[in-house]
Design a protein around this nucleic acid. Structure first.
Length: 222
DNA sequence: GGCTGATCATGC
DNA sequence: GCATGATCAGCC
């Protein structure tokens, strides 16, 4: 397999995604001439980056959808033996300042989640990375009910951030969406709003989808 | 055993 | 530091 070019259509993208289903990460990595780590202790994003390359996504750290032309975001989803999500799903970086005027419909969370290509992958730690199998792709768009849940959580979280209560937000806040630390380490700091409206320094945060939410997506797909 | 908070790698 | 790709691992 040569390094794929970006897909020109949704149909083309789905065709490639279906071709990957049933293959192991080792087979895919081998065809792309990519080295396979023994575990993910030091290569946490390896699976996602492998699938990105296999599907022709433009690697990078742009705050956009993976296939911006197609309006599609790509996410791998690690599953356990019961086909349930093993991990929460990172959505995007969380702005902690300049929130005046931001709305759900203009948020990065909304933008990223309006169309997602989910690629399930076996994720049990006892399965070596090269033996993990890729499952059937799921092209998902949130239902009105799912969008409402996301909107409610997003608005609650943004309001707390805007009111200077970011330090009081824990991973327990939110029904389907969470705000959690997202940084290289505990020393990373970014600007946020304090309880008296002053500037403070805090750990950078990111938005994550809870497992109950991605589980629901899987259930509706099969 | 599951979850929250912490952490790893990479590019710019 | 920001933003992407996420999983690790200690604590409850």
């Amino acid at each position: 397999m040569k390094l794929p070019l970006p897909p020109q259509s949704e149909t083309g993208l789905m065709y490639r995604a279906n071709e990957l289903s049933g293959a192991t990460l080792g087979e895919i990595a081998h065809s792309l001439n990519i080295a396979i780590p023994a575990n993910f202790k030091h290569h946490k994003g390896w699976t996602g980056q492998l699938i990105e390359k296999a599907l022709g996504a433009t690697a990078g750290s742009k705050p956009e959808q993976d296939f911006a032309d197609l309006g599609i975001e790509l996410k791998t989803l690690p599953l356990d033996y019961q086909h349930k999500p093993l991990e929460t799903t990172y959505v995007c970086y969380a702005p902690l300042t300049n929130l005046v005027g931001t709305t759900w419909l203009t948020s990065s969370v909304y933008n990223k989640l309006q169309k997602v290509l989910w690629i399930p992958v076996q994720g049990e730690r006892e399965i070596p990375p090269d033996e993990r199998m890729v499952g059937s792709p799921i092209l998902w768009q949130p239902t009105p009910a799912q969008n409402q849940l996301l909107k409610e959580d997003w608005e609650e979280l943004v309001e707390l951030i805007a009111l200077g209560k970011v330090e009081s937000i824990t991973a327990r806040t939110g029904q389907v969406l969470q705000l959690r630390p997202k940084a290289a380490n505990g020393k990373a700091l970014t600007e946020a709003i304090g309880i008296n409206g002053e500037k403070i320094r805090t750990r950078p945060r990111g938005y994550y989808l809870r497992k109950n939410f991605t589980q629901q997506i899987l259930n509706n797909a099969f």
